[in-house]
Amino acid sequence: MTYPFIIPLDLELKFKTLEALLSPYPSFAVAYSGGVDSTFLAWYVQKVLGKRLHAFLVQSPFLGRRERERAQSLAREIGFSLETLFGDPIAVPSIRENSSLRCYFCKKESMTAIKERAHTLGYAAVLEGSHAGDSRSYRPGRRALKELHILSPLATAGFEKSEIREVSRLAGLSNWDLPSQSCLATRIPYGTAITSDLLSRIEEAESYLWEVGCRQVRVRIHENLARIEVTPEDFPLFMEKNTREKLLRRFKELNFAFVSLDLAGYRSGSGDKINP
């Protein structure tokens, strides 16, 4: 197998495992989000293995406009086909009610749609981009992947997030250092019903923080309080009087009565830790 970069010695076995997992299949559909993992997986399947590839992006109120447009731009940049499927998870009671199994029900819904469309188009297998570290955190959606026989080759081959970033950098993928993203529903505590209005307010609040210059952002909701998570390196932004006053005005416009900065900083899955 020919690679456009020299494989780091400590990753040779993982790449051999990845190749062995995927080589038997003639074609693939990939669940694509525009994130580092699914982008690398799509690139690897098409550019390295030379397999027929079709990527699917599920557009729904859970996916912010910023992420959707980035995913579409990356697909054009790399040069693989991307099809958008439209979903309405809020219309599904088991998702809208937002129990601790929301991710399972949501993943089951979206991956079923992708699998059915991929089958119609004649693709041999469906892939998604989970990495090895995902198995060490609360990911109820993994159960849905197993039930639907969706392949997670990066996780199976043992690739960690940091390793995927490094090989993406070596491959010249422009999003190799893109901050990790998750669906907007993860900002809402379990037990709080999900509405289009609430998702829209969260997206607008986070968009404002990106514009201010934050490098990693989550706005987590607790009734009428917005809890801002950013990296500690961005804390000084909130100490500037002008920035702080503008932020408070914007968040008040979005109907948040209280705004707080989480001094622990950004943590992936902190909503799960607060609401196990």
Rank of each mutant, 00 (worst) to 15 (best):
A118W: 07
H119R: 06
H119Q: 12
T120F: 15
T120I: 14
L121I: 01
G122M: 15
V126E: 00
V126F: 13
V126G: 02
A132E: 11
G133M: 08
G133I: 12
R136P: 00
S137W: 04
Y138V: 10
R139K: 07
R139S: 02
R139G: 01
P140D: 10
R142S: 04
R142I: 12
R143T: 15
L145A: 06
L148N: 02
L148K: 00
H149G: 03
L151E: 00
L151W: 07
P153D: 08
L154R: 00
E160D: 08
K161W: 00
S162F: 08
V167L: 07
V167R: 12
V167D: 01
S168A: 15
R169M: 10
L170M: 14
L173I: 03
W176K: 02
D177V: 03
L178W: 00
Q181H: 08
S182I: 11
C183N: 02
A185Q: 09
T186M: 05
I188W: 14
I188F: 13
I188A: 02
I188Y: 12
G191E: 05
G191M: 10
A193S: 13
T195V: 10
T195L: 10
S196P: 09
D197A: 15
L199W: 09
S200Y: 05
S200A: 15
R201A: 01
E203L: 03
E204Y: 06
E204D: 11
A205K: 11
E206Q: 10
E206M: 09
S207Y: 11
S207R: 13
Y208G: 08
L209P: 03
W210T: 02
E211A: 12
V212T: 14
G213V: 14
C214Q: 03
V217M: 14
R220W: 06
H222A: 10
L225G: 03
L225Y: 02
A226W: 01
A226R: 08
A226K: 09
R227W: 04
I228K: 10
E229N: 09
V230H: 03
T231R: 12
E233V: 09
D234E: 06
D234M: 01
F235L: 06
F235W: 03
L237Q: 07
F238R: 04
M239W: 10
M239Y: 11
E240F: 04
N242H: 09
T243M: 13
R244E: 08
R244Q: 11
